[in-house]
Structures are given as structure tokens and as C-alpha cells.
């Protein structure tokens, strides 16, 4: 369970050294996207259009922040992770086309995303759900916002962060998946509990 301080851009070699349950902090650029932004990004890929933001060797954050506009400048007030499972259906195609290195979210992702991460060289990091004040504190600047027509939570926020974390590696590039491991254990425990209740 070692500690990694990652600075974007992050290389494939670097990401492959990271193991399940390691702790990660990120410094550099992270970009938010939720359901609607993923949907639109996929339509861009299919039409061969370039995205108006760069994810290559950077981090994607499943998050819809609380923001405030002071004069012309946006400020992030609160930014914790949203449920990553909702993005499972998009992520293989998204990873392939965007070359994202790190996905930050909560609750874990499924088998298909795990396979895609091994294939394209990416990891999934869990950020504590609800830890939005801590998240916002690590955000030093809002570099820009795209697709604001999707609404504040669904827009793409391009953020400059310093020591964003602590994040726990929950999917590594070797097809290990912490949440799936725990789910299996929980299922076994549930069967035992139910058997005991039946008496």
C-alpha cells in the first residue's frame, strides 16, 4: 500500500507501477464529466470531432461541483465524487479515444471498465464520497468550463489541482478491482447471515 504523488501528464509506465489499494495524490489538471458530458464526448468521437478539452495523460473526475462566479471568474466551492457506476456504459469507448490515465470517482466501476483500463493503461481511484470541502480545497484554479449548456453539474470543468486526495486505487492496470472483491465477500457474508436468521 504505497504512496504516489502523480503529476499530470502521467505516463503509461508510471501508471503501470501503481497497485491496488495504493494511495494517490494528483497535482496538475483534472477534468470533470458526468453522464451528459460522456454522452456528448462519445458523439464527438463517433463524428471524428476533437473535444474542446484535453484528457490525454490527465485525470477525469466524476463530479458535479458547487461553483460560484465572482465577477468573471469561476470558483469551486465544493467538489466531491459522484457515483461512477452510471458511467460504466461509456467508459471503454471514452478511455480508448481520450487516453485518460486516471479516473476519480466513488463506488467503483465494473468488469468492462476494468478490462479497458488494463488495455489502455488507466487506473480508477476512489475519492471519499461527500468529501467535497476537502476536494475544493485542493482545487487551485478553474482553468475553464465547457458545455455549460448541460447545466452546472453536468458541464465539463477544467481544474488545476494541487495534492488532490487522498485517493485509494480501486482498479489497477492489472485487472484488480477492489469493489468487486469486497462485493464477493459481502455476498458470502449475506448468505451466512440469512442462513443464521432462518435458524
Amino acid at each position: 500500500m504505497s504512496l504516489h504523488i502523480l503529476k499530470t501528464p502521467i505516463s503509461r509506465e508510471e501508471i503501470q507501477k501503481i497497485k491496488l489499494k495504493d494511495t494517490v495524490y494528483i497535482t496538475g489538471t483534472i477534468v470533470t464529466a458526468r453522464d451528459q458530458a460522456h454522452r456528448r464526448a462519445l458523439s464527438y468521437f463517433r463524428e471524428g470531432k476533437e473535444l474542446p478539452f484535453k484528457l490525454e495523460e490527465r485525470a477525469l473526475f466524476h463530479c458535479g461541483p458547487v461553483v460560484k462566479k465572482n465577477d468573471a471568474k469561476w470558483q469551486v466551492i465544493a467538489a466531491g465524487p459522484t457515483t461512477s457506476k452510471r458511467m460504466d456504459i461509456f467508459e471503454e469507448e471514452f478511455l480508448k479515444n481520450s487516453k485518460t490515465r486516471v479516473i476519480i470517482g466513488k463506488g467503483g466501476m465494473g468488469r468492462k471498465t476494468t478490462e479497458a483500463m488494463a488495455k489502455y493503461g488507466a487506473i480508477y481511484c476512489a475519492f471519499t464520497g461527500g468529501a467535497a470541502a476537502l476536494g475544493a480545497k485542493a482545487i487551485k484554479d478553474v482553468k475553464g468550463v465547457k458545455w455549460l449548456d448541460l447545466g452546472i453539474p453536468e458541464a465539463v470543468w477544467i481544474l488545476e489541482v494541487k495534492d488532490f486526495g487522498p485517493l485509494i486505487v480501486a482498479i489497477d492496470t492489472h485487472k484488480n478491482n477492489l469493489f468487486i472483491d469486497i462485493e464477493k465477500e459481502v455476498e458470502m457474508k449475506k448468505q451466512k447471515i440469512l442462513a443464521k436468521l432462518q435458524g
Binding site: 458535479g64 458547487v66 466551492i77 465544493a78 461527500g130 467535497a132 470541502a133 476537502l134 475544493a136 480545497k137
Partner: peptide, 12 residues
């Protein structure tokens, strides 16, 4: 931290 900075503790 949310109490100290008087900001919403969760973004949702």
C-alpha cells in the same frame, strides 16, 4: 473543514 470554511460539506 466545511464548518471552518462555512461551505457545503458535500457538493450534492
Amino acid at each position: 473543514l466545511a464548518e471552518k470554511e462555512k461551505v457545503p460539506l458535500c457538493q450534492d
